[in-house]
Design a protein around this nucleic acid. Structure first.
Lengths: 163, 163
DNA sequence: ATGCAATAGTTGCGAGCACAACTATATACA
DNA sequence: TGTATATAGTTGTGCTCGCAACTATTGCAT
C-alpha cells in the first residue's frame, strides 16, 4: 500500500527543508522585488559586489549559482540593460567576459541590503537561540557538503568533482 | 561600502539553507525524472496517495504546494494526460473538482518511493547523527512556522491566516 | 426571490530558464 | 605548425509557471 510510505520520517524531513526554504525565499523575494530585482539578479549583484574588483566571469557566475551558462547570459543581459553591470573583455582569455558591477549596481545593493538583513533576522536567524542556530547551520553545512561536492572549496575544482 | 555586508553571517545562513535545499532537490529530481515525473508531479501524487480516498480538490493542492491555482490546473492536466490521476466532480459543490489518483498513479508511486527514500537517507537524514538530525529538524520547523503561518494546522484555516 | 460578493477552476499571455546547436578562442599533441 | 579537442559565451526552441481576465457556482443580504 502506498500509505505505508505516507508518513515516513524521511519524507517529513525533506518537507520541512522545502517549506522552510521556499517560505523564506518567497518572503525575501517580495522585499527584493520592491527594488526592481529578482532573487537571482540580487544574488548575482551580491556575488559581484563582494569580489575584489567587483567582477566575475560568466562561467564563475554559473558555477556559483543554480543557473546554467545560458541562464547567466540572460540574467546578465537584464542587469546590463538596467545599467547595474557591464560586460568587459578579459585580457588573458578572449573567450571570456567579465561581468562588472557598476556604481549604480552598488547603489542598488546598498538600498536593498540593510532591510534585507533585517528581514533574514526577523524570519530566520532571529527565530532561534544562538545555540539552536549553530546546530541548524552545522546540520545544513553537512547536508550541503554531501550534496554539493566542493561547493565551498576552489570553484575551479568544483565542476570537476561533480562529474 | 558594499563589502561591509559581504560576509554577514545572516547572508551565510541563507546561503547554507539555499545550497542544502537546492542541492538535495536537484539530486532527488534526477531520480524522479528517471520515472518520467517532475518533482512537483511527484509531490502531488504523494499528497493524493496519502489522503483517504486518494482525492483532493484543486484548491487543496494549491494550498499544500508552492503552486497557484493555475499552476495546479496544468500539473493536473499533465498527470491526467498520463492517466496517473482523473478529475471527478465534487457532489457537494459543483464548482469544485476532485483530483483522484488512479491505480496507475499508485503503481508509479510504488515504483519511485523505495529508492527515493533510500536517496533521502543517503544524502540528507543519514548524514547526521540522530541527535544532530533532531536539532536540524527542530530548527527548520521553527523557521517554517515563522515563515508559513498555519502550514501544518488545518488547511482550511491556513489560507485565512496568511491573508 | 433577487442581486452582489466570494470562491473554484480554466485560459491567454508573457517571463524565466534549460537544452542543444552554434561561433570563437584556447590548449594539447603529433 | 597543423589538427583535434576542450572551453566561454550566445541564441533558437520549448516547457513551466504566475498574473490577470474570464465563466460557473455558491452564499449572503435584503
Amino acid at each position: 500500500m502506498t500509505r505505508d510510505y505516507a508518513d515516513d520520517p524521511r519524507l517529513t524531513a525533506v518537507g520541512l527543508l522545502s517549506e522552510a526554504y521556499l517560505g523564506l525565499h518567497a518572503k525575501l523575494a517580495c522585499q527584493i522585488a520592491e527594488h526592481g530585482l529578482s532573487m537571482i539578479e540580487f544574488e548575482i549583484l551580491i556575488r559581484l559586489g563582494r569580489t575584489p574588483g567587483g567582477q566575475l566571469r560568466m562561467t564563475d557566475l554559473a558555477a556559483q549559482t543554480s543557473l546554467t551558462a545560458s541562464g547567466v547570459t540572460r540574467v546578465v543581459d537584464r542587469l546590463e540593460r538596467d545599467s547595474l553591470v557591464t560586460r568587459t573583455a578579459c585580457p588573458s582569455d578572449r573567450r571570456s567576459l567579465y561581468t562588472v558591477i557598476t556604481a549604480s549596481g552598488r547603489a542598488r545593493l546598498e538600498a536593498v541590503l540593510p532591510r534585507h538583513l533585517q528581514l533574514i533576522d526577523e524570519w530566520f536567524t532571529g527565530q532561534l537561540t544562538p545555540n539552536a542556530l549553530d546546530d541548524l547551520l552545522s546540520g545544513l553545512r553537512t547536508v550541503r557538503d554531501a550534496v554539493r561536492p566542493g561547493a565551498e572549496a576552489g570553484i575551479k575544482n568544483a565542476a570537476a568533482l561533480t562529474r
